[in-house]
């Protein structure tokens, strides 16, 4: 029967081994995969500024990107491809709450430049290789 000291070795040994593997895999992902899959060369100052605006307004508090965030408003990973630049800018620059089908978005009344930065960020997000996410609706007629 398992003794307490054996149980302790199982805990400490298992933790160390899996953590070492985790660090190795993480290092590989961050140094080899991320630069290619996210097209890091396209991370322009404008895209980074867009990310700042995205975070400053907690857009993830309603929307998701890359499937992460809240589930109150649409997934925005492919929004640039789906809606195009002018639609996105209209939503961001609107002085009254943007409310398609009645559900209200906060009226951010962004300047043209801020809206352009967010669009650049969303365009960059749309080009990241996400291993096939979001899935194509296979039952769509």
């Amino acid at each position: 029967m398992l003794s307490k000291s054996q149980a302790k070795i199982f805990f400490l040994g298992g933790t160390l081994v899996t953590f070492a593997i985790f660090l190795g895999l993480s290092w590989n992902s961050l140094s080899n995969e991320v630069p290619k899959k996210t097209h890091e060369e396209n991370l322009s100052p404008q895209v980074i500024s867009g990310k700042h605006i995205w975070e400053k307004n907690n857009c993830m508090g309603c929307h998701t990107i890359m499937g992460e965030g809240a589930y109150y408003a649409p997934e925005l990973t492919k929004v640039y491809e789906r809606r195009g630049e002018s639609y996105i800018k209209a939503a961001l620059m609107s002085k009254t709450p943007w409310a398609p089908r009645g559900r209200k978005m906060v009226a951010y009344a962004m300047s043209e430049q801020e809206a352009n930065d967010v669009v650049a960020f969303l365009k960059w997000i749309g080009e990241v290789d996400l291993n096939g996410f979001p899935p194509k609706p296979d039952l769509k007629k």
Binding site: F11, T15, T18, I21, F22, L25, E33, L130, N131
Partner: peptide, 22 residues
């Protein structure tokens, strides 16, 4: 707690499926 760490540490991978890593 051993089972927790052995499964949970590498289980972090389920958050990495679709965020731009391999």
């Amino acid at each position: 707690v051993g089972l927790t760490f052995i499964s949970g540490i590498l289980g972090t991978g389920h958050h990495y499926y679709y965020i731009g890593v391999g």
